[in-house]
């Protein structure tokens, strides 16, 4: 069977499911309210109105995205197993790997739509304070999306063998460690303990989400060099591929009880 056709069927189904998910509606509403509220925060800042709105807007997109990535990543596969919808899917002439990839692509689609919608909304809100579209935000938003794909892949990996609560806990841990791993590395550099130094360096090399954050560059119009964009893009793709490959290994031989 044409796998691409199957992926489309799965992605479309995942999107339909997300459209009816109240948790996602509430999260999107919260992020939208936060961006709107940034207009008032900007008012009380000193001539930084538009920067505050963009900064808060990008943070809201990232926060909403992380929430959606973790939520979908840990629940969507689990629900297929818990509600046993996986039974009638696995009985079809489809490889198990394709089920997992299909689910992941569905998540990627939903995350993409969420990011695009929030971006359009951010531009709408910024249009109240400046009469031009700031394209400098786009690289930062693109990397937010790549980071979300990595987080979703982490969530899928954990959910392929764990409960939603534990998967959510581990994925959140991954995200937080990834965001501060460069600080950990700096601590390690200054430490006299070789074991800690090695460990801190290793963590930073493996889990480093800091390069995905171009918010400061985008908001303050700092130059964004090619490697600032391509390195995290490449790193994100490799990490995602490794995480999904790990999930496939678990998923391929798992009993769906």
């Amino acid at each position: 069977m044409n796998r691409f056709k199957f992926y489309i069927a799965f992605a479309r189904n995942a999107f339909r499911e997300a459209r009816h998910n109240k948790v996602l509606h509430i999260a999107a509403g919260f992020a939208a309210a936060l961006i709107l509220f940034s207009l008032f925060m900007g008012e009380v800042s000193m001539y930084q109105n538009e920067k505050v709105v963009k900064d808060v807007g990008l943070a809201a997109i990232s926060l909403l995205g992380v929430f959606v990535a973790i939520y979908l990543g840990v629940t969507s596969l689990y629900q297929e197993l818990e509600k046993r919808t996986i039974y009638s899917i696995v009985s079809k002439p489809i490889r198990r790997e394709d089920v997992l990839i299909g689910k992941y692509l569905g998540m990627a689609w939903i995350l993409g739509v969420a990011v695009v919608m929030m971006t359009l909304y951010l531009y709408l809100v910024t249009s109240f304070i400046e009469a031009k579209i700031d394209f400098a935000l786009l690289p930062a938003i693109a990397l937010i999306y790549v980071e979300l794909l990595v987080i979703a892949a982490v969530a899928v990996l954990f959910s392929s063998f764990s409960t939603p609560f534990m998967s959510g806990f581990f994925t959140l841990g991954f995200f937080l460690v990834g965001r501060v791993s460069h600080i950990l590395r700096d601590f390690g550099e200054r430490s006299k303990n070789d074991v800690f130094k090695f460990f801190a360096n290793l963590v930073q090399k493996v889990i480093d989400l800091e390069p995905f954050d171009l918010r400061v560059h985008a908001v303050h119009k700092l130059p964004i060099y090619m490697e600032d964009f391509w390195y995290p893009l490449f790193y994100g793709c490799v990490l995602t591929a490794l995480l999904i490959a790990g999930s496939l290994v678990v998923f391929r031989r798992r009993d769906f009880k």
Partner: peptide
């Protein structure tokens, strides 16, 4: 996959995507 192509399956207490 070839064998599965010729199978139809109804699980016990089926739950399907209700949306």
């Amino acid at each position: 996959s070839d064998a599965k192509r010729h199978i139809g399956f109804l699980p016990e207490n089926p739950y399907f995507y209700d949306y």
